[in-house]
Simulated assay, not measured.
Amino acid sequence: MPPEVSGSPSDSLELGWEVSGASGAVVWQKDHREVKQAQRTAVSSQGTQHKLRGKQVTQAAQGSYSCDTKDDSTTFQVKVRETEEMFPNKEKVQKEVKAALTQNAPLSWEVAQEKPEVKWSKEGKLITASKKFKVESEGKSGGLVVSQLEKKAAGEYSCEAAGQKLTFKAAVPEAEDAFVSKETVPKEVKAALTQNAPLSWEVAQEKPQVKWSKEGKLITASKKFKVESEGKSGGLVVSQLEKKAAGEYSCEAAGQKLTFKAAVPEPKPAFITQEKVQQEVNAVLTESASLSWEVAEDTTEGKCFKDGKLLIASRKFKLETLGKPQGLVVEQLERRDAGESICEAAGQKLPFKLEPTEAEAKFEHKAVQEEPLVVAEHESITLSTSVTPEPAARSG
């Protein structure tokens, strides 16, 4: 009875025969057909030693082999054991795993033998353990965890053990809208300078984890930015809007974004007929000087400043800052009142320049001398007059 050689699938097979002396050519056959050198089959002869090697045998390698020389021959019976199922209960394994974006996707298996040598690949490319891919194995169980799933990480994954494969599919389902009624949310918010700009949202799930950013930069709650959230509603309030705070704001929840635009519209002119206002005022010392303007809205209250200091109503300053026509009267004008005064309304400014002048001298009594005065030589004569105000500037 020919000797029997047994092997398992994917094992290597070696058949060897030693002859007594030089025997000439050797022919190997399987089931009466010659076996030739091939990718998985190697035939070698060295002196009296003759060998046939097979790599990664399959069930097709099973059969009767013979080694024939001119004077002798020998026969082997090769048996390949039935393949052991490496993945029991594979029908019950969840082969299609769905996970939302940024969540983890676990792919799990169970094998017949403990501590198997397992290889993972994605669409033919070998996977190595990393921050993105966590390979787990304990006893007969194990798996692969795809961390923080992205769309590009979705696809087909293969787990291979003892030449057998188990295939999984990781999928990213279409995300449910995180923001509800987003078509009706005012996405462009306009607010005047120094006013608050509220940006509001409503989400599908309560207590969402929301992040705000402005032009790509993360926003944290502060005196300038107030983050609000209650149930399914919330928002961001930009306090006392400035021009530099205007721009694009993004609200992110569950990987989805809602974009807002905060704008500062050009303010309406606070002063009307500004071109006709007398902004350079000349007034006589000790007299009153009037600065007048008119505002567009009768609810706008004006303020006046001199050298950066707010002027308040007093005996010196009379202020009329309610209604549309408004003004400032400076009583008993002095030289120190000269210079620029600023009127401010609704954040806009109107400058005035005040220039005190000396009073013009006038004669009190203009007596007409009808007859010429005749004075003898070497006699004295006195001429006198009076002017107002006193003292008057002398003319040369």
Rank of each mutant, 00 (worst) to 15 (best):
R81M: 02
E82R: 15
E84C: 04
K90R: 14
K92R: 14
K95T: 08
K95S: 08
V97M: 06
K98T: 07
A99E: 04
A99S: 14
A100V: 11
A100R: 14
T102Y: 05
Q103K: 14
A105H: 03
P106A: 06
P106T: 03
P106Y: 03
S108V: 07
S108Q: 07
W109E: 04
V111Q: 00
Q113E: 15
K115N: 15
V118P: 03
W120E: 03
S121W: 01
K122T: 03
K122M: 13
G124F: 07
G124S: 02
L126P: 13
L126K: 14
I127P: 04
T128H: 12
A129T: 14
S130G: 09
S130Q: 04
S130F: 01
K132Y: 01
F133C: 05
K134I: 13
E136S: 12
S137R: 12
V146S: 02
V146C: 03
A153C: 01
A153V: 07
Y157C: 05
C159S: 07
E160Q: 15
A161N: 12
A162V: 09
G163I: 08
T167A: 11
T167H: 06
A178F: 03
V180C: 03
K182D: 09
T184M: 13
E188H: 11
V189L: 12
K190D: 07
